[in-house]
Design a protein around this nucleic acid. Structure first.
Lengths: 220, 220
DNA sequence: TCTCGCATAGGGCATTGCCCTATGTGTTGC
DNA sequence: GCAACACATAGGGCAATGCCCTATGCGAGA
């Protein structure tokens, strides 16, 4: 049955990007786009029906983060290989994504050729990451303990980072809770942990740092 | 000379997006991509030679912001109409972009059809913005006649500005009150007035604006 | 003088911040 | 395989703050 094409599912809230990917993939004789979705809940729903071979996921999608989707995928559909397609610099998210279970990480600034190459590698059972990310991983293997050599933000857990980003956009605690679909209490707990990690003493300083960071690394 | 197509110049550091736009534009009989660039300096250089009709600019490009590019374009090549194509929520940047001289603002989450529509509107000499952004502008025109030239901060009274700056530094209301040797109640009143003037709805947004302003205009 | 913006501040209720506790779930280490 | 740990989740409870309304004194203009 070599005739059957490998099925790719797209999760991205930019129609632009979905169109581009669809075109690109349909130019390949052995690949086909079997579905797409704009948000996490519908992505999970469709994927459980369609059972694609690969899911290409944008990190910063509406209604839940791409990282959460990848974790869910790994738990619910371990046969579906996730590839992250992000517009963000890989240093910020690649490690989190791969830890969450992604099998590839490509930036949107890469060429079309490379995207296809990554899909093929992942279909072949390999994991793709850029040389620079591979170097970071290797270093951490050798070194062992990782005392957050880069920015403090790397010390944050995935959910803490999400809260931090939303705060940076100017959302209140209540709004963050609604967006993340969790209790305000949990958001407050995340805030508390972020403050500990960053050695901040009050909510105003947390807000300031979140906004500062957001100014330098705008997300979605 | 109806044969000559309108020339579009692309400034975006994502090859993906440039490819997509090029394809899209070349499907139109009256439009053509006349050049592209990944960063601000080379964009300015090429534009001064090519003299396109429209420049489509990503806000968050490497090596200088899109806003700065638009300001330069307006100063150096006022005949080149700038359209911002951003992946960021318009509330965050649309106003800044339009103030800087952009004649259109489209999010990358819009459809291809809309992008082309905006290009055509701008070529026709119109300014395009979404309904929600237009509403914000209209409100500001009707409600408060804005000195426009320069920052909104000029609308603030002296004490309000002091509060605003201290908030931007990450002080809490209580600390601001202590530093200014006034009651917390007064600080809250100042905050309330600032929020009115800036049309902010809650304390988190006020904090965000204060920090942003502080980042751009550091005081003492 | 009357009005208007500004700075000051209190009252009062809803909301939030902040500290403590707690549970379930992975992961890591032995 | 069990213990320890980090993480995500969330409730309880009190103090602090946010936010709306009201109020006073002051100076600048009409």
């Amino acid at each position: 049955m070599n005739k059957s094409k490998s099925k790719i599912f797209l999760v991205d809230d930019h129609p632009l990007v979905r169109e581009w990917l669809t075109n690109l993939i349909h130019q390949q004789p052995d690949l086909i786009v079997c579905g797409e979705s704009e948000d996490v809940p519908r992505a999970l729903q469709k994927i459980s029906v369609i059972k694609p071979d690969v899911a290409i996921v944008d990190i910063s999608i509406k209604h839940g983060s791409g990282i959460e989707l990848i974790k869910s995928l790994k738990a619910l559909h371990p046969d579906v290989a996730a590839i992250v397609l992000s517009m963000h610099d890989e240093k910020l998210y690649a490690e989190r994504a791969l830890r969450a279970g992604a099998r590839g990480y490509v930036m949107k600034s890469e060429t079309a050729k490379k995207v296809i190459m990554v899909i093929r590698q992942v279909l072949a059972g390999k994991i793709y990451m850029s040389e620079s990310i591979a170097a970071v991983f290797a270093e951490k293997f050798v070194d062992g303990r990782l005392p957050a050599s880069g920015s403090l933000v790397e010390q944050l857990s995935d959910r803490e980072l999400e809260v931090f980003q939303l705060l940076g956009k100017g959302y209140e605690t209540r709004q963050v809770a609604e967006l993340m679909k969790i209790s305000m209490k949990t958001v407050q707990a995340h805030c508390s942990h972020i403050k500990e990690k960053f050695k901040l003493t009050n909510a105003a300083e947390l807000l300031r740092e979140a906004v500062r960071w957001h100014e330098n690394y705008p997300t979605s």
